[in-house]
């Protein structure tokens, strides 16, 4: 399959932006938590699940999506949000608990909602799948070619909502794509201890739908299978599952002691970093000048810096605002 250079560039740029965003978030999160880590302290309190290393899953499918397509995401949402085009300033402000945030500071990092680009996420494992199912149902009822993508972790594929939703999506032939990011762990539990099959694309058979598997965190392969899955969904050819083998470089959440895995594991994973691989691929296979990539990287960093600055400079909500927005 030939891929347009624009798509390749967009994927690289967006992966780079995500990585830089997450690195900065790790720093911001650590502020106020030194020398003693306290989850409630600092400018970014609460749990923090970062997606460093998992960029290919987000960009490989979002490159095929338009604004009208829906994306739902779990507790680890930043890469999906960025790839779907969520307003970066307002997303960052939300994570800093500011009044300019997407939810005026009410939601936080696990609860980002940007209806302008049809993005949502949540902290209950598996809960986003039925929401995407409903968006797919609405798309079909409205007679559009819109699709809905539910991103989940491999751990969520053992939740009832996964199986119920896929059965219904298949039964009603809905444009739903469930992307499973297999980062090998659900918190401390390795996939082999939670999942009865080696990979979740196999489970597609149970619903009579398409299953795809992408190995080695490969953005290009993710691009290819996603293209097919999205095109099929748009044409009314039904739902699919995509499982991508991906890597979680960091702990489940920031501050995770990671007693359950070998410290070497991550070092080995980082050696095959997908962003580094993609950069080389663009230069070697597509003859893209390094200078051009450097310019893209600078631009991405500036955008991220601006978002963090916007978040830090914004005001906190008034305490009494807590009582607003319960009913619209």
């Amino acid at each position: 399959m030939t891929i347009s250079i624009d798509h390749l560039i967009w994927m690289y740029e967006t992966m780079y932006k995500i990585r830089y965003y997450e690195d900065k978030m790790a720093e911001a999160y650590a502020e106020g938590k030194n020398p003693v880590f306290n989850i409630g302290a600092g400018p970014v309190p609460g749990e923090m699940h970062l997606a460093t290393g998992q960029e290919p899953a987000a960009v490989g499918i979002c490159v095929h999506l338009k604004k009208e397509d829906t994306v739902t995401s779990p507790h680890r949402p930043h890469h999906h949000a960025i790839a779907k085009g969520v307003n970066l300033n307002r997303m960052t402000a939300e994570i800093f608990g500011k009044v300019t945030g997407l939810g005026k500071g009410k939601g936080g990092h696990m609860h980002l909602f940007d209806p302008d680009v049809k993005f949502s996420c949540g902290g209950i494992v598996g809960a986003g799948i039925p929401h995407a199912l409903g968006a797919a149902l609405a798309a079909k009822k409205k007679g559009t070619d819109w699709v809905a993508v539910a991103f989940i972790g491999e751990g969520a594929a053992n939740q009832g909502a996964f199986h119920e939703s896929l059965n219904m999506a298949a039964l009603w032939n809905l444009p739903l794509i469930v992307v499973i990011e297999n980062n090998q762990y659900g918190i401390s539990v390795p996939k082999s201890a939670s999942t009865s099959v080696p990979s979740n694309d196999i489970r597609a058979v149970a619903y009579g739908i398409k299953g795809y598997y992408v190995k080695d965190n490969d953005p290009i392969e993710m691009y290819n299978v996603s293209k097919e899955a999205v095109e099929r969904a748009r044409k009314g050819e039904g739902p699919s599952i995509i499982e991508i083998e991906t890597y979680r470089y960091l702990g489940h959440f920031q501050g995770d002691p990671e007693v359950y895995r070998d410290k070497n594991e991550v070092a080995l994973l980082r050696e095959k970093d997908p962003i580094v691989r993609m950069r080389q691929f663009l230069m070697k296979e597509h003859g893209i000048e390094e200078q051009r990539l450097i310019e893209l990287e600078n631009k991405a960093r500036q955008e991220v810096e601006a978002a963090y600055q916007f978040a830090r400079e914004s005001d906190y909500p008034e305490p009494e605002d807590a009582l607003k927005d319960l009913f619209v």
Partner: peptide, 8 residues
């Protein structure tokens, strides 16, 4: 009390 928000 530690900013884990509405679902935690």
């Amino acid at each position: 009390g530690y900013s884990d928000a509405a679902q935690h």
